[in-house]
């Protein structure tokens, strides 16, 4: 559980009698509830499902945020970037025309979260605040240079997303801080991006290995590159060595392979029920190589269908 998310469990309204649930319509009311120890619930697909699985108790005091209008929606902003409300759902993100065109990796990510039902209620804010090393949207957001806006009774602060995560299920946000929105800066012309994960089956997967690439091509050469790995370290993280391996290249297979090797080297894979560590490390190289190639293809204007994951396993 994230610090962002774990506001209410032990402390807070210790004096109030019994459990409580409120669903206010303003951010002020939400942060007031958080200040007294209520825990935010958005779609509940992590919080409630996790409780049912016995991973953590149902928080005593809940504040639901689905009725707060100002936390909703996806809007272009003046400098060519994009603003996403914390309660934008994966379904909305996956269908958004601007995201599909200009932030394609994010559409790749949101369109493979769980099932259609999960995507219709699961939110971007919840995905971030839950801070899972397997969270689908974190890699794309980091690579696009996303910032997130946090708000509490002490005011607002803006934080680059790659400074938010501090460990599995943990963030640097304070217990009473609400994630209000995420902002994506404009991407230069000639940018293509891709997110994909290894998938054992075609639906209802969890990232065992995932990778993001965002590349900018200028005159046939990569001038900017961002690469992140998912489920391969305690947090989703960027891989500067992979980025360096791409810059200055044409984005050919050899460069993509070097990026893949760098991603594998930067991985700290674990052995668990989902995969053995050596397999995970090898897959870090394969999946990274494939997302780099798909991002380069997209930067060149070629079509790689969304979600990319579905087409990457031997084009099936």
């Amino acid at each position: 559980m994230s610090a962002l998310a774990s506001g209410s469990t032990a402390m807070g309204q210790a004096t109030a009698a019994g459990p409580s649930y409120t669903a206010p319509t303003t951010v002020d009311d939400v942060i007031a509830a958080m200040a007294t120890g209520s825990r935010v619930v958005a779609g509940g697909t992590d919080l409630v499902v996790g409780s049912r699985q016995g991973r953590w108790p149902v928080p005593e005091h809940l504040v639901a945020i689905h009725r707060v209008n100002s936390l909703r929606g996806i809007r272009p902003v003046v400098d060519g970037g994009l603003w996403l409300g914390a309660t934008a759902t994966h379904g909305e993100i996956a269908e958004d025309a601007t995201i599909r065109e200009r932030y394609t990796a994010l559409a790749d990510a949101s369109s493979i979260v769980g099932s259609r039902a999960t995507r219709n209620v699961g939110t971007l804010g919840g995905n971030i605040a839950n801070a899972s090393p397997a969270a689908e949207t974190s890699g794309p957001l980091m690579c696009f240079g996303a910032t997130c806006m946090l708000e509490s009774r002490n005011g607002r602060r803006e934080l680059p997303l790659d400074e938010l995560f501090s460990g599995p299920g943990r963030t640097v946000a304070a217990m009473d801080e609400l994630l209000v929105s995420v902002s994506l800066p404009a991407q230069p012309a000639g940018t293509g991006s891709c997110y994909a994960r290894l998938e054992y089956r075609r639906q209802m997967e969890i990232a065992v290995v995932g990778a993001t690439a965002v590349v900018t091509l200028d005159g046939g050469q990569i001038t900017a590159a961002r690469v992140a790995i998912t489920s391969l370290a305690p947090t989703v993280r960027r891989v500067p060595e992979a980025e360096a391996a791409l810059i200055g290249s044409t984005g050919d297979r050899a460069a993509a392979e070097r990026a893949g090797e760098a991603a594998a080297a930067a991985s700290l894979p674990i052995d668990d029920v989902r995969a053995a560590a050596d397999y995970r490390r090898a897959m870090a190289a394969v999946i990274t190589r494939r997302v780099v190639q798909a991002a380069v293809d997209r930067a060149r204007g070629e079509t790689v269908s969304i979600p990319a994951s579905a087409s990457l396993h031997g084009a099936l």
Partner: peptide, 8 residues
């Protein structure tokens, strides 16, 4: 998929 071992 020979690189990943995924079977369809």
């Amino acid at each position: 998929d020979r690189d990943t071992g995924v079977v369809r």
